[in-house]
Structures are given as C-alpha cells and as structure tokens.
C-alpha cells in the first residue's frame, strides 16, 4: 500500500493540476463545439451558396479520427494559418472542431423535428424570422437535443486524454510523467483510470439529471 501513498497521494498536487488543465480544455472545446456546431448547422440549412462548404466541413470533422485531427491541427495549421500558437490552443481547437461536426448534425435533426405549425404560429403573430428562431426554434431544439449534447461532452472528456500526446500538461500527461520518473506504473495508472472513469460518469450523470429536469419543467417526457 505504500506505493499508493508515495506515488498517488503524495503526488496529488500534480495530479490535481493536471485535472484542472483537463477540465479547462474540455470546457473550452465544449464551448467551441456548441458555437461551431450551431454555425455550421445554420449555414447548412439557410445560407445556400455556402452550403457545400458547410457539408464538406461537417463530413470531414465527423469522418476523421480525433487523434489524426489533433496532429493535423497541431502540425499543419500553424504553418498554414499562423495559428494556433500553443499546444494548449491546438488541443482544445481540435477537440472542439471534431465535436462541432457531430453537434451540427444533432442540431439539424433537432431543428427539423420542430413542428412546422410552431414556426407558422410565430409568423402569424408577427414575429420576424430571427425572432422565430431565437424564441421558438432554438429553445425547442435545445430541449430535444440536450441528451445528445451531454453525450458529446463526455466524448470530449474521453478524447481530451489525447492532448497529452502534444505535451499539454493534462491529467494524462502528469500521470505518464510520474510513470516515467518512478517506473511504477501500477498505482499511478490505475488511479488515473479511476479518476477519468469517475469524471466521465459524473459528467454524464449530472448532464442527464439536468436534461431531465429541464425537459420535465417544460412539460416534455423524460424518456
């Protein structure tokens, strides 16, 4: 048991530091994914001339593995666009882009599921199409797609382990550093795995509870 104390408990400061970086990256990526997904989806649905571009981007983000995209953003983008200029930025941008592709499709399904009558009701009381979107379509969509959004967030947390490969000091990287210093992988890696599993479990349970709460509040069934 002493290894647990020596390698995990006594190093909790490092691991905690890593965990905060993980959380930070996940939140930034999640924000980018929501904004990017919404933009891609709206462009796809409403901006005719840019539609092929949006479709191509969505398909590209969805059909390339996250690790490949991470390497691509990290090595190719800085020379191509002069940005991102840090590993940390590459990390969350790649994670966010991948998820924005998935969320764009989720949003599209949600928007198309809003009954026509709701929109027409909005127009008939004199709302502009922007108002109809802001006050009717988007709130309804957010409610129906809430579980998928939560699910996507857990995917981001799981994929965030990969940013350690480009030396972003997240929980995974701190754990691997400890392994490389002490050559005692059992306790450190087991503890890290448990922390990640607990984190993802926590996120998905909390997200589900929140989504259920909102759906019940607005009178949708919680199924």
């Amino acid at each position: 048991m002493s290894n647990w104390e020596r390698l995990v408990w006594n190093q909790r400061g490092l691991l905690w530091q890593g965990l905060t970086v993980t959380v930070e990256i996940c939140l930034l990526a999640f924000a980018l994914a929501i904004v990017g997904g919404l933009v891609l989806c709206l462009v796809r649905l409403h901006v005719r001339p840019l539609r092929p571009v949006a479709v191509a981007l969505i398909e590209f983000f969805r059909a390339t593995p996250i690790f490949v995209q991470l390497m691509w953003v990290n090595y190719v983008w800085p020379e191509l666009f002069g940005w991102p200029n840090s590993f940390f930025t590459s990390g969350w941008v790649a994670l966010g882009l991948q998820s924005s592709g998935y969320l764009a499709e989720t949003f599209r399904a949600g928007i198309e599921a809003v009954p026509r009558g709701h929109r027409e009701a909005g127009y008939s009381v004199g709302m502009s199409s922007f108002q109809v979107y802001r006050r009717i379509v988007l709130p309804e969509t957010l409610l129906t797609v809430a579980p998928s959004i939560v699910n996507q967030f857990t995917v981001i947390v799981k994929s965030s382990t990969l940013v350690s490969v480009i030396t972003v000091p997240d929980l995974m990287l701190q754990a691997m550093k400890l392994v490389n210093v002490w050559y005692e992988p059992i306790e450190v890696l087991t503890a890290t795995a448990i922390i990640y599993i607990a984190l993802v479990f926590l996120v998905s349970s909390a997200g589900k509870a929140l989504a259920d709460f909102h759906r019940r509040r607005f009178g949708l069934d919680s199924a």
Binding site: P185, Y196, V200
Partner: peptide
C-alpha cells in the same frame, strides 16, 4: 458496462499495456 463505457480509450490502452502484464 459502466466502467468500460466511461473509460477513455487512451488510458485503457496504456493501462492494459503497462499495468495488466505486471498484475
């Protein structure tokens, strides 16, 4: 189901590669 669905692929690969053989 709960353990494996919530586990990131990368940490599981590393764990199986470095820890499981020792155990």
């Amino acid at each position: 189901v709960e353990v494996f669905r919530n586990a990131p692929d990368y940490i599981m690969i590393v764990w199986v590669h470095f820890v499981l053989p020792l155990l």
